[in-house]
Design a protein around this nucleic acid. Structure first.
Length: 427
RNA sequence: GGAGAGAUGGUCGAGUUGGUUUAAGGCACCGGUCUUGAAAACCGGCGUGGGUUCUGCCCACCCUGGGUUCGAAUCCCAGUCUCUCCGCCA
């Protein structure tokens, strides 16, 4: 949600910024509604003030034995008038609200216009592993080593589901343990939120009302404000943790992380090249989240990106960091960096973490504020999130980057204490 | 799932036979006086949002949404949530 005052005061500035991610922006109608709204408020508040004044006089007039029936007639008309204006006002405010709800966040100044093709690679870590033997892709490795059962996953869940089995499950859990340990070391608070969320959560996060079709809804009824859905990312839960709250300045920053599976419909996005576990309806992810003051959010952003990078580096996986162009960022985000890991069989980098600064966009939608010590006034908080990390691309990257000629896979050092072995081979 | 009770500004809590409560009072908190310092005492301040002709004034908000009325925290209807008891249950 953008600040209507900002649009009113600097329409051209906001418009030009939004044009980095939108094809057309026109505030003419919005500003008209805004003007109508304020005129109507002035008019109606005057009427209400009069009504209040008369109401206060009534007891005295009655005590004095005056006849008030004529006055009541007038007040009846006035009240009907107020009621009508309130209805008009509500219609206008609904229109304004709907319009603002649909606008994406303003891209940060240093975010460039355009889509995916304009993304900028900031840095690359490590090198592409070179193999002097014929390599396998992660699907074959996972199948041959009995780490993942794709067929039975489809049998019990449907297309794009899989089952981690035996050592595969242990390896998956080792990754999560590794991430959790690192976040605890950095002083983040561990949360395990519900996986089923209400409509308001999706709205605050900025996913609703536009993307209700991307989530698994719990009941079969139409999307409405009493619906519940399976969370597509823990971010949706974490951004709502302090919804409608006013935090004190010294409580900030708040640093959280959560583990949840992520449930996504991914309707129509299936591609043969993404078979295996690159894109499923359910995947495990640990999500980092911060609530900060406006002046601290840029530093927090750097911290989150750095933390995510460190996790991939700790696993020794070749990866890169990209700065997304405006159109490739989710609607709620003003700036996003992606961390992508190298998948040899695909000859490409795949996202394992997306770090974003939503600035005050989500906080406005969720009414999340803090009290500024120096002024005593409330301000909107800044919210940031970053995966730390999603396992569904890390797992394949490990298999493929650490595979050996005999079909076995070396376990990254940091995971060995949980996996219990330094090499995974077929027995 | 069944029965009952409740929801008021950071907290406790008054107000619920509708009209100087246009939300009292206590506590906490902030500022001041006093004091070597602190406590106590005393004085003052102390919810959120919106509008504005902005050193001020006005409007809205007493769980949410409707309704009755000249007028609703107060009456009526619907819903949400919390608590207690019972049942069921990992």
């Amino acid at each position: 949600m953008l600040d209507i005052n900002r649009i009113r005061n600097n329409p051209e500035e906001v418009k030009n910024a939004l044009l980095k991610r939108m094809d057309a922006v026109d505030f003419t109608e919005l500003l008209q509604w805004d003007k109508q709204r304020r005129e109507l408020i002035v008019l109606n508040d005057e009427k209400k003030a009069k009504r209040n004044k008369v109401s206060n006089d009534v007891p005295r007039l009655k005590k004095e034995g005056k006849d008030v029936s004529q006055l009541f007639q007038e007040m009846k008309t006035l009240s009907d008038d107020i009621k009508q204006n309130d209805e008009k006002l509500r219609e206008i405010e609904d229109k304004i609200h709907d319009y603002l709800s649909a606008l994406p966040n303003i891209p940060a100044e240093d975010v460039i216009a355009g889509g995916k093709e304009s993304n900028e690679v900031l840095r690359v870590w490590g090198e592409k592993p070179v193999f002097d033997f014929e390599t396998k892709n992660h699907v074959d490795l996972a199948t041959d080593l009995n780490l993942i059962d794709y067929e039975r996953g489809v049998k019990i869940g449907g297309n794009s589901f899989w089952v981690y089995t035996g050592v595969g499950a242990i390896l998956e859990w080792a990754l999560l343990n590794y991430f959790i340990e690192e976040h605890l070391k950095d002083g983040y608070t561990f949360l395990l939120p519900p996986h089923i969320l209400n409509y308001k959560c999706g709205y605050t996060a900025g996913q609703f009302p536009k993307f209700t079709e991307d989530v698994f809804k719990i009941d079969t009824s139409e999307a409405n404000e009493s619906m519940q859905f399976l969370l597509p990312t823990a971010e949706t839960a974490l951004v709502n943790y302090h919804v409608n709250e006013i935090l004190t300045e010294d409580e900030l920053p708040r640093k959280y992380f959560a583990y949840t599976p992520c449930y996504r419909r991914e309707a129509g996005s299936y591609r043969a090249e993404e078979r295996g576990m690159i894109r499923g309806h359910q995947f495990n992810k640990i999500e980092m989240f911060q609530y900060t003051t406006p002046e601290d959010s840029e530093n927090a952003f750097v911290e989150l990106v750095t933390k995510a990078e460190k996790l991939v580096q700790g696993l020794g996986l070749h990866h890169r960091v990209s700065k997304l162009a405006a159109k490739d960022c989710s609607a709620s985000m003003g700036k996003t960096f992606d961390i992508e890991v190298w998948i040899p069989s695909m000859n490409d980098f795949k996202e394992v973490s997306s770090a974003s600064n939503a600035y005050d966009y989500q906080a406005r939608r969720g009414n999340i504020r803090f009290r500024r010590q120096s002024t005593g006034r409330t301000e909107f908080i800044h919210t940031l999130n970053a995966s730390g990390l999603a396992t569904s691309r890390i797992f394949p990257a490990i298999l493929e980057q650490y595979q050996q000629e005999d079909g076995s896979v070396v376990v990254p050092e940091v995971l060995r204490k949980w996996v219990g072995t330094d090499i995974i081979k077929n027995v």
